[in-house]
Design a protein around this nucleic acid. Structure first.
Length: 271
DNA sequence: AAAAGCCCCTGGATGC
DNA sequence: TGCATCCAGGGGCTTT
């Protein structure tokens, strides 16, 4: 589910409310992708300083160490002063003096991992190879061009891989390529400089726009307030196979790349 | 170093 | 109604 916009919207919806809270209790449900890496009791008494985002990871900074959270495919967070009793898919409750942060994740591809610092091997393993932040100042065109010039893989899969630019998942990869007028199957290294520049701009635009719209709610995404996103209503190609392109009226096509579906307009997007 | 497959897991939609 | 099959927003790991 969650790509950069959904993760960022989630972060914004609870960061200020949890900051300053002290951990009272940590309740774990079924196992997630990885073990927490520390006894839950060891976190009691720690203070939450703030919440940052790196790619699709959320970083909960504590006064000692940090927690890395990932929402996987189906995860979502809620934050409430007095949460209801946990359900079968609520796999972590972080009870603080300011409220309870709860991770709900039916598929359990998500994770909550403790690291002593960002230099901790577990943090390096998860964050160390991540690419540029598309909405940050470090996402510069020259670096993007240089990185793409080294990749022979289809551009859609390069965007998805996360080692050039982070946060672009299956929805926004298709949408960014549509905005840039680029066929998803085009080999990254074959893109001309002007087209790479268009793509660079398109990635920023589509992600920023999606954040502003509260993310995309396809099935069940909601932020920590329980609010849905609305970007899916303005998707140009994602999930629109067989429907007319909103720009030219051609029929939107779908194909599979690396066991993921890709959507594009055969007329607006050229290789 | 880069690319391609394989998994992890549950639930909803679809088809017979 | 019941059951099998396919698909889903991610990404680490292993193999080429």
């Amino acid at each position: 589910m969650p790509e950069l916009p959904e993760v960022e919207v989630t972060r914004q919806s609870f960061a200020d409310r949890i900051a300053g809270g002290r951990i009272l209790h940590v309740r774990l449900g079924k196992p997630l992708r990885w073990p927490l890496g520390v006894a839950p009791e060891a976190l009691v008494g720690r203070r939450v300083l703030g919440v940052r985002r790196r790619g699709k990871y959320l970083l909960l900074d504590l006064d000692e160490g940090l927690l890395l959270l990932h929402l996987g495919m189906s995860g979502s967070l809620s934050f409430a002063p007095h949460p209801a009793a946990p359900g079968v898919h609520d796999h972590m409750d972080l009870v603080t003096t300011l409220g309870t942060l709860r991770l709900n994740d039916p598929r359990r591809f998500g994770a909550v991992v403790h690291a002593a610092s960002e230099a901790d091997p577990v943090a390096v393993k998860l964050l160390g190879k991540l690419g540029m932040e598309p909405l940050g100042a470090d996402f510069d065109l020259a670096t993007f061009q240089a990185a793409l010039a080294r990749r022979q893989a289809p551009i859609k899969q390069v965007l998805l891989a996360g080692n050039v630019v982070v946060g672009v998942g299956n929805i926004y990869a298709s949408e960014a390529l549509f905005l840039a007028g680029i066929r998803p199957t085009t080999r990254a290294a074959r893109l001309s400089r002007p087209r790479v520049a268009r793509l660079h701009q398109a990635v920023r635009e589509v992600l920023a726009r999606a954040v502003a719209k509260g993310g995309s709610t396809l099935r069940d995404f909601s932020n920590a307030w329980g609010e849905s996103g609305y970007f899916q209503l303005e998707a140009n190609v994602y999930g629109r196979e067989g429907q007319p392109c909103r720009v030219c009226g051609s029929t939107v096509c779908a194909l599979r790349q690396g066991q993921r579906s890709t959507f594009f307009c055969p007329s607006c997007q050229k290789s």
